[in-house]
Design a protein around this nucleic acid. Structure first.
Lengths: 248, 248
DNA sequence: AAGGCGCCTTGATGCAGGTCAAGCGACGTG
DNA sequence: CACGTCGCTTGACCTGCATCAAGGCGCCTT
């Protein structure tokens, strides 16, 4: 409403990680007009967690919805006997919390240090109801997540351990480095978290990582750093080396 | 707009499977007002497929969105080497097609005989844009599907073959019979489709079905009929019978 | 009636990935 | 410094499911 809040809004529009938008993405900001941005700016608060912190347990009251600003968080489901499967991996600009449902359906854990931009449910849902641009964007984001979940199901149901690990590494490498070989990244996940993502055990993940390294398709730098000159090789040739060239 | 179309709308409201609503569900119809129902009635057309028919291949142009009226259809993804994983199972009132994307992202196959209620994309999207009730309902449905996909991921990633089969049977039994033991159903899926759903082979599905029958937790009637007096037993005790009582 | 086909079941065997166990390097703490 | 812990790796072994193969049953066609 005031000149200063509009100035903040314009500044936000100049970056990809828009600061004033619940969905934290330029595509939305571009369609948010002044008044909406003002309302959002008044609703939001920030909060941070350390790597490993549990942000919410399954069944907890989650009195906010939020947009992930920095870091990486996971959604996991645990069966009665303790088996656990990751079912969501949130990266910056991803949305957390379901409008209209206060209970957390999954355990939410900070994989790395995390900052959330949080909105009180009441205010957010009022805004959703009378801001078609934002609700349409939220629908798009849900459908993108559904597509991602379906790709993930193919991975869980049909891929071999080596393909699983290669696929996950490729996803992370692509997100981290915007092209320009060699692709490099710091893994935001522990081996445990990777195993949970992939439906494998930690030992199998570890073995496949060293197998990929020995096959020459990736390089490891310490326990978190990875590099890859050829994503295609990672994804297709992974599992060759039949003559054992790299093992001798 | 006319008296007769309003009459049709009211009649539709009296049943759960609403005939005039793109989302085919009373919850939506209850929030759809007269004018919207009229517009929907003018947009829709019906079309049927036989069991086994391919409704759309991955990458096909899908010039409509639709609501599944009767029967059961599957979404599947196939890897380059032919491995295939089901990633969606549509039942009556489920929605098919993504607004804003004309390409089919998955192969759509009729599991049983199927009828779709179809809407031209252009008209549907115009209506979406200025009908908040319907677009909100579509968001809810997407989020429900996302939850279902995540349950499915737990199944694919962490459950044993026996648990997988038991879980699928329980889902079908619950949908088919509204309580009142013994639960009975005709499976809408072939063993092949079940294997595709579960990330297993057809042989393993078959073996687990007979194991569950021998353990006494289900009965089989021909190849498609199943019954179960005790869902809890199916889901928890599945895999016991350690002393072989039922095998002697 | 014979033959063929689609769908399902059952058996024998092999292997990918799980399980159990040991050890290693980095880091923090008394 | 010794010690414990945490995250990771590696090895040895085992098992659940895939694979390969055969056969049964219902149904259609000729």
């Amino acid at each position: 409403m005031t000149v200063s809040s509009l100035a903040i809004a314009s500044a936000a529009l100049a970056t990809d990680a828009c600061d004033s938008c619940p969905i934290r993405h330029r595509a939305v900001c571009a369609s948010c007009e002044g008044e909406e941005l003002d309302r959002l700016a008044e609703m939001k608060t920030y909060r941070s967690w350390k790597a490993g912190d549990v942000i919410a347990m399954e069944g907890d009251e989650l009195p906010f919805v939020a947009s992930l600003v920095t870091g990486c968080a996971s959604l996991t489901r645990t069966l009665e006997d303790g088996r656990t499967q990751m079912v969501g991996l949130l990266m910056p600009s991803d949305f957390l919390g379901r409008p209209g449902r206060r209970m957390a359906a999954y355990e939410v854990t900070a994989a790395t240090d995390v900052t959330l931009c949080m909105f009180k449910r009441g205010a957010f849902e009022v805004m959703l109801a009378d801001t078609p641009n934002v609700s349409r964007r939220l629908l798009e984001m849900s459908l993108d997540e559904l597509d991602a979940a379906r790709e993930w199901m193919v991975l869980l149901g049909r891929k071999t351990a080596r393909e699983k690990v290669a696929t996950l590494l490729a996803i992370i490498l692509r997100r981290a480095s915007n092209d320009a070989a060699p692709l490099r990244a710091q893994l935001p996940l522990t081996r445990d978290a990777m195993a949970s993502y992939l439906g494998l055990t930690i030992e199998t993940v570890s073995r496949q990582m060293t197998a990929l390294r020995k096959a020459g398709v990736i390089e490891l730098d310490g326990t978190r750093g990875i590099a890859c000159h050829d994503l295609a090789a990672l994804l297709t040739e992974a599992g060759d080396d039949e003559d054992g060239t790299f093992l001798s």
